[in-house]
């Protein structure tokens, strides 16, 4: 399974610039994780229903009642730069 691991691809997806040493270290660590998953895959779970949660709780919701949000000043206060009450980011075209 660990042979499927493409560390460059994974790092790129996470937007991480890794040094060759880090790549080697994380490849090994992630390989161990995948090895553990391989072990888990050997367990027969054919009688177990798949679930995304360990606890059977459903339909946790709220009524659709709008309440005030953050003042625009507060919404912008963590932004490194803003203009016209909008957050300034480098120009990026989707998919690049």
């Amino acid at each position: 399974m660990s042979t499927d691991l493409n560390i460059d691809h994974v790092a790129n997806l996470a937007r991480l610039a890794l040094t060759p040493e880090e790549k080697a270290r994380f490849s090994a660590q992630l390989g161990d994780v995948l090895g553990h998953i391989e072990q888990l895959r050997k367990i027969d779970v054919s009688g177990v229903e798949a679930t995304a949660h360990a606890y059977p709780v459903f339909n946790v919701w709220a009524d659709d009642v709008a309440r005030p949000g953050l003042p625009v000043e507060a919404a912008l206060q963590n932004a490194p730069e803003h203009r016209d009450n909008m957050i300034v980011v480098p120009k990026v075209v989707e998919g690049e």
Binding site: M86, I87, V88, V89, K91, V93
Partner: peptide
């Protein structure tokens, strides 16, 4: 999208 940067409205 502006000339040199982009502005976000959430």
């Amino acid at each position: 999208h502006e000339t040199v940067d982009s502005l976000i409205d959430y």
